[in-house]
Computed example of a mutant assay.
Amino acid sequence: MNMWWIYALLSAVFASLTAICAKIGISGVNSDLATAIRTVVILFVAWGIALSRGELKGIADLSKTNVLFLILSGVATGLSWIFYFKALQIGKVSQVAPVDKLSVALTIVLSVVILKEALTIKMAVGAILIIAGTLVLIF
C-alpha cells in the first residue's frame, strides 16, 4: 500500500475530529478567537515536529517561489479556518463539513486549470458525485 493513501486517510480522520472538537469548543466563544487559539496550537505542533525530525536545514534551500506560494497557502488556510469556524458556530456540523468538502471537487478543477493535470473520466465523475452528495446533504 502506498504511504500517501495512509497519510490521506489519517488526514480525513483528523479533519473529521477537527469538526467535532471545534463545534464543541466554540460553544459560547467568538469563532475568530477560537481560530486564533487553534492556530497557536498548530504552530507549536508543526514546529515541534519539524525541529524534532531535524528538518529545519531545508529552510536555506527554499526558493522565492517556494516562499511566496507557502505564504499564499498559509493565507488561504487561515481564511479557510476563519470561515469554517464561523460556519460551524452557526450551522450544523453535519451540513457544514460536507459543504467544506466541496473543496475536493474545486481542487480537481483547479488542478486541471492551474497545474495542467490530466482530467480523467473517473475524476470528473467523482467530482460530480461529491457535488451531488453535498447538495443532497444540505437541501
Rank of each mutant, 00 (worst) to 15 (best):
V13C: 10
K92L: 09
I138S: 03
R53S: 10
T39F: 02
I49F: 10
S73R: 09
A132S: 08
W5G: 12
N2K: 07
A36G: 12
V125K: 00
S11D: 03
L33V: 15
I82E: 12
L68W: 11
F85W: 08
S94Q: 10
L129Y: 05
G48S: 12
W5K: 11
A132G: 09
N66L: 02
L102V: 12
P98I: 04
G25A: 07
R38K: 09
K116A: 03
A105K: 02
T134M: 06
A22N: 10
Q89G: 14
A36I: 13
C21D: 01
F139R: 14
V109Y: 07
N66Q: 09
L33K: 15
K23D: 05
A50G: 02
L51S: 10
W5P: 04
I49G: 04
N2S: 10
S111G: 13
L135F: 14
K86A: 07
A132F: 09
M3V: 10
G74N: 11
V136S: 04
W47S: 15
I121A: 11
L119K: 02
L102C: 07
A15K: 01
S73K: 05
V96Y: 01
L102S: 09
R53H: 09
V109I: 07
L56Y: 03
I90K: 08
T35V: 15
F44E: 13
V113E: 08
T120V: 02
V40N: 12
I71S: 09
V45R: 14
L119H: 04
F85E: 14
S11K: 02
V113G: 07
A8T: 07
K101Y: 07
K101V: 06
L137H: 03
Q89N: 12
G28Y: 00
L119T: 00
I128T: 14
G126D: 02
T39A: 13
I131A: 13
I130M: 10
D32H: 03
T18Q: 12
K92G: 07
